[in-house]
Amino acid sequence: MKNRGFTIFNYIFFGVLAFVMVYPFWYAFLSSVVPYSDLMQRTLPIIPTKFDFSAYKEILVNGLLGDAYLTTIKSTFIGLALSLAFTVSGAYVLSIEKLPGAKIISSIIILTMFFSGGLIPMYILLSDLKLINNFWVYVIPSLINTVYMFIIRTSFTDIPLSLREAAEIDGASECRIMLTIYVRLSLPTIMVIGLFYAVDKWNELYTALYFIIDYKLYTLQAALYNLLNANSGTGVGGGAIKTVDEQVKYSAVILTILPIILVYPFLQKYFTKGVLLGSVKE
């Protein structure tokens, strides 16, 4: 029995909210396609009539973004796969209450959330591991995000122990238990974390700035940062790209967001599917 009034309110509320949320994105899109002089006048139409894609052309053609796109896509997929593997493993390890040594393991891990040696030792370490200026620096040093791991662990510990006990009686191995019970039942959460990892990798900026020298290995965000923030301190005007500064900035936003917006709706159904039938959750 659903309250009619509330339903109407809900739809309207979210309508307004969605409009407000979309506005900066719509503004960014408008700013990127409107003719430059209109943008400078700060008179943006609600619906654009004249389209000017010169900023996009500048970025994609002059900005050599092709390489950056490829690198980012590669690092996103590979990073996502490896990170999920490690993260789910770690979450599983931490979720077993009875495991001898569990407290030690989790203390070791939690401590790293707050204590850090800083940038310089990391740079030296990566240099020793030959990861500087190397594609794998996007994937390996950031394999596990501890917060994400704890989110999955929380999802694991919500699963009633009775399921585990039943499986143990049946003689299932830990590997089997992990995959058929825990991973399967936590699939929505794991997919969400997968999405989070993917987005993190997609938006990766500082790794490239600090640890990569070769422009061709830049990620998308780093390449855009480079284009937008280039300091002409040594006194060079650079290419024509500088004259479309603001438009380039907004086009950069759109180019980064677009793939995510195109992908997310397809993933949504996994989140809303819910628990697979046939299991019991008390």
């Binding site: 900005g63 050599l64 422009y215 480079n226 002409s232 301190g233 040594t234 650079g238 290419g239």
Partner: peptide, 10 residues
């Protein structure tokens, strides 16, 4: 070592 954008380097 200079500052500027890496495109300049390329």
């Amino acid at each position: 070592l200079l500052n500027g954008d890496r495109l300049e380097g390329e």
